[in-house]
Design a binder for these strands. Structure first.
Length: 805
RNA sequence: GCCGGCGUGGCGGAAUUGGCAGACGCACAGGACUUAAAAUCCUGGGGAGUUAAAUCCGUACCGGUUCGAUUCCGGUCGCCGGCACCA
């Protein structure tokens, strides 16, 4: 009899063997077929690894291990996204350099990941805070700057009145500062921006060529928010200026009854002297500017606004004079900051018109018939037909759009226009723990790029990481570092003291893994050509908009620069669900439902944790933790362990067992490719249940089982492989093959139904002729069959249905 | 409000193109082993009904298509996640 399974000894033993033999190192043979599996690298927080981390890591570890056994050269790397606020805040609080904090956290994370037996190639470990790494982050920034895609502008930012610091959107929770709970207001500051909007169309179009799960594609598209419409110029009565608006419904131009401009619109200041109610306008603007985003949202239902007295606009298609209002439901940052209002056919305009008693003109009807626009706006584009609109009358909405745009362009009063919701990327942070922006400001030459030879521009040592009162980065106090000479004219100049956001380092990290030690380039051309695109990238849904969009943007830019040779960085993108606490709530310290993976590894073993996290439920859905579930998986592995005592090659050859083996190989092989880890494991459980029922297992079958289970539970399977005396190691063996023909059972049990209700089952030969099967079926249910038979249906190998009356 | 997803036993969850609903696991119950317990092994199981069967009801709810619907279509309700007036 074998000894009890001791996971502590076995797991340590095999982890050492893998390390000593560099079992999962990538080969540089670029002629071999490659597979690049990628998981989002973690932020090494002070809390250490969370049980949520192993879910995606194990899933792709399974795929990576399987691919190696199938003969691929597999790149499955890991690194650290280590710049960021929590580390900086910890450093401030404890007066420890963020570098030290990061180093300690990374060491802990690495040890924890190592204890889980992942097949990462640790020789390719990267860290975004390593100057040799962020040298290339800065290099990409310079490329963007030189290409005119990085610029500086005045931008309102979130400002905490108590901490006196600029906050990222993520740090503003319900309108207050995440850290101190104080009010957050808007403050205008000069910020570095990246022109991601330049790539908006490509970022949509190229989604067609990649294999992302549908909801990821949808959220990318929604975030970019493309809309087609027209810009139209409205003249202002007795003035030369025109008021330009953007609309997606140019077909409703005859239904305009007023206009609205945003409170920040420049036209207001321009005609200040002629506005009759200037004081009222100023009051409204002040009120609007004080509103935080949160308040604006809260008031979303109730529209507010003020009419501008003394300014009248003229509808270019019918000459009608219309009033102009200001209201904060019109945003300066989208379109032209001004709209034409068609209250009969737009919900927001309708609400506004109702509140201020503005007239409604119906110009679209349902299939041409008048509808009650006093009750609600009629916005249905599909059934709408134009009316009261001169030459557009009788046209369907889509045709009317084409005709009106043609008209506007001919008369030179408007043009067709595409708009995006996507805004340029605010790229600066007034923080210490980030990549310095390699730019110098010279009074004579303006913003000047640092020469490449001066990269990396390293973070200076500062005394305090505390942000300054005036909202500048702590680096600004380092005058030695800040004062420099202009690379362009040699005169006195100052360095940029803002740093990059955390998104920067993670926007290109997958490129660095392909050639992490390269000092001449971010990676060699050969390595990039060979490894890209990433074949399979898995990450959390929380990163499907920003991180995914940002990294696709950088990649497309690098493609245009000739640095990489693929348009898209990731061929396939999948997402995993969250692991919740046993009470079904998100795990958090305050809820007291946090599970530490170290405890699970120690008590049940890494293989058990891996198996459980894969068995817990559908991979893409969230799942609640259950310690009992963990025990069940440990029990399964114990049962696998004890199979070593049931090896018996003398037993009779069993046809049904052969079928089950082939079915299991097929199921496990397919399920591992389709995120269906839970059913793959269920199939293996069913297989060993069968071995137990027989009381024995052949060496061949055992060997196959070990190979199939190895990606999920690598340690125990290696140990059993070695005990059984199979050659080499599992990781050096090949993935089991199955024969399709042998997955089919020769005798199948099928259901016999009357009128779709199952009455009994019969066993038939899988190749039996339809007539024979039906005859057998009728025989089997002869006592229940009454009435005339109308129809006989036979679905081969599945079901017989007799329709009788 | 809009977008996306999800509603199946006591619980986590399975079900190819529509084809025996509840695989696999947990918890539970019974049995074997044990002085006993734990562990392990075996057996059972949606509900009603019956000694047992037959039979009926069951995939959130209502309706439709079909020989046949957890699956497809229309509507209703509930839960989760994301976005917030984008003209």
């Amino acid at each position: 009899m074998s000894e009890m399974y001791n996971h502590k000894v076995v797991e340590k033993k095999w982890q050492k063997i893998w390390d000593d033999n560099k079992a999962f190192a990538v080969t540089n043979d670029f002629t071999k077929p490659k597979f690049y599996a990628l998981v989002e690298f973690p932020y090494p927080s002070g809390q250490g690894l969370h049980v949520g981390h192993p879910r995606p890591y194990t899933a792709l570890d399974i795929v990576a291990r399987k691919r190696r056994m199938q003969g691929y050269n597999v790149l499955y790397p890991m690194g650290w996204d280590a710049f960021g606020l929590p580390t900086e805040n910890y450093a401030i609080l404890n007066k420890i350099h963020p570098k030290i904090v990061t180093k300690n956290n990374v060491a802990r994370f690495k040890e924890q990941l190592h204890s889980l037996g992942y097949s990462f190639d640790w020789d390719r470990e990267i860290n975004t805070t390593d100057p040799e790494y962020y040298k290339w982050t800065q290099w990409i920034f310079l490329k963007l700057f030189n290409a005119g895609l990085a610029y500086k502008t005045e931008m309102p930012i979130n400002w905490c009145t108590s901490c006196k610091v600029g906050l990222a959107n993520e740090e503003v929770v319900n309108g207050v500062c995440e850290r101190c709970g104080s009010e957050v207001v808007r403050k205008v500051k000069s910020q570095w921006m990246l022109k991601i909007t330049e790539y908006a169309q490509k970022l949509i179009d190229d989604l067609d060529g990649v294999d992302y799960i549908e909801k990821v594609k949808v959220s990318q598209k929604n975030w970019i928010g493309r809309s087609e419409g027209a810009e139209v110029d409205f003249s202002i009565k007795d003035k030369e200026d025109k008021l330009r608006i953007y609309t997606t419904r140019p077909d409703t131009l005859f239904g305009v009854t007023y206009m609205v401009v945003s409170p920040e619109h420049p036209i207001i200041d321009k005609y200040k002297d002629e506005i009759g109610n200037w004081d009222e306008i100023v009051d409204y603007r002040n009120m609007a500017s004080k509103k935080s985003d949160f308040e604006r949202t809260e008031l979303a239902k109730d529209k507010s606004g003020v009419q501008i007295q003394g300014i009248t606009a003229i509808n270019p298609v019918n000459g009608r004079e219309i009033p102009v209002w200001i209201s904060d439901y019109v945003l300066m940052t989208y379109g032209t900051g001004a709209i034409m209002a068609v209250p009969a056919h737009d919900d927001r305009d309708w609400e506004f018109a109702k509140k201020f008693n503005l007239p409604l003109i119906q110009v679209v009807g349902k299939d041409g018939a008048v509808v009650d626009i006093e009750a609600e706006a009629f916005t249905d584009v599909a059934t709408g037909v134009l009316m009261n609109s001169d030459f557009l009358d009788g046209l369907e909405v889509k045709d009317a759009k084409v005709k009106i745009i043609q008209f506007l362009e001919e008369k030179n009063i408007g043009i067709k226009k595409v708009n995006f919701k996507l805004r340029d990327w605010v790229f600066s942070r007034q923080r210490y723990w980030g990549e310095p922006i390699p730019i110098v400001k010279c009074d004579k030459c303006g913003y000047v790029a640092l020469p490449e030879s001066e990269l990396p521009l390293e973070l200076p040592e500062v005394e305090s990481y505390m942000p300054t009162d005036n909202g500048e980065s702590p680096i600004a106090a380092m005058t030695d570092w800040v004062n420099t000479t202009c690379p362009c004219c040699g005169g006195a100049a100052k360095r940029e003291t803002d740093t990059m956001p955390q998104w920067a380092g993670s926007s290109w990290y997958f490129l660095r893994y392909t050639d992490p030690d390269n000092t001449q380039a971010l990676a060699s051309k050969e390595a990039l050509n060979y490894w890209l695109p990433v074949d399979w990238y898995n990450g959390g849904m929380e990163h499907t908009t920003l991180h995914l969009l940002y990294s696709r943007f950088w990649h497309k830019f690098l493609y245009d620069q000739g640095v990489v040779s693929t348009k898209e960085p990731y061929q396939k993108r999948t997402s995993h669900g969250m692991i919740l606490g046993s009470n079904g709530e998100k795990m958090s310290k305050s809820r007291g439902n946090v599970v530490n993976p170290d405890d699970i590894v120690s008590e049940y073993g890494a293989d058990t944790l891996r198996t459980y996290e894969m068995f817990i439920g559908a991979f893409d859905l969230s799942a609640s933790w259950s310690e009992d579930g963990v025990k069940g998986c440990r029990r399964f592995l114990d049962r696998v362990w004890k199979l070593q005592d049931m090896l018996n090659d003398d037993m009779n050859y069993s046809k049904s067992m052969e079928t089950m083996m082939h079915q299991t190989i097929k199921k496990v092989s397919n399920d591992f490719e389709n995120l269906k880890y839970n059913t793959a494991i269920a199939a293996m459980m069913a297989l060993i249940n069968e071995f137990y029922k027989q009381g024995s297992v052949t060496k061949g079958e055992f060997k196959t089982l070990l190979a199939l289970l190895n990606p999920v539970a690598p340690h125990i399977t290696e140990e059993l492989w070695s005990i059984a005396g199979f050659e080499n190691s599992v990781y050096q063996s090949t993935w089991p093959e199955y024969e399709e023909a042998k997955t089919v059972e020769s005798i199948v049990e099928i259901a016999v139904q009357i009128n779709g209700k199952t009455k009994t089952t019969i066993s038939i030969d899988k190749d039996a002729a339809k007539d024979d099967v039906i005859a057998m079926a009728k025989e089997a249910i002869s006592d229940k069959l009454t009435g005339d038979i109308i129809k006989e249906i036979y679905v081969p190998g599945r079901i017989v249905n007799i329709v009788a009356k």
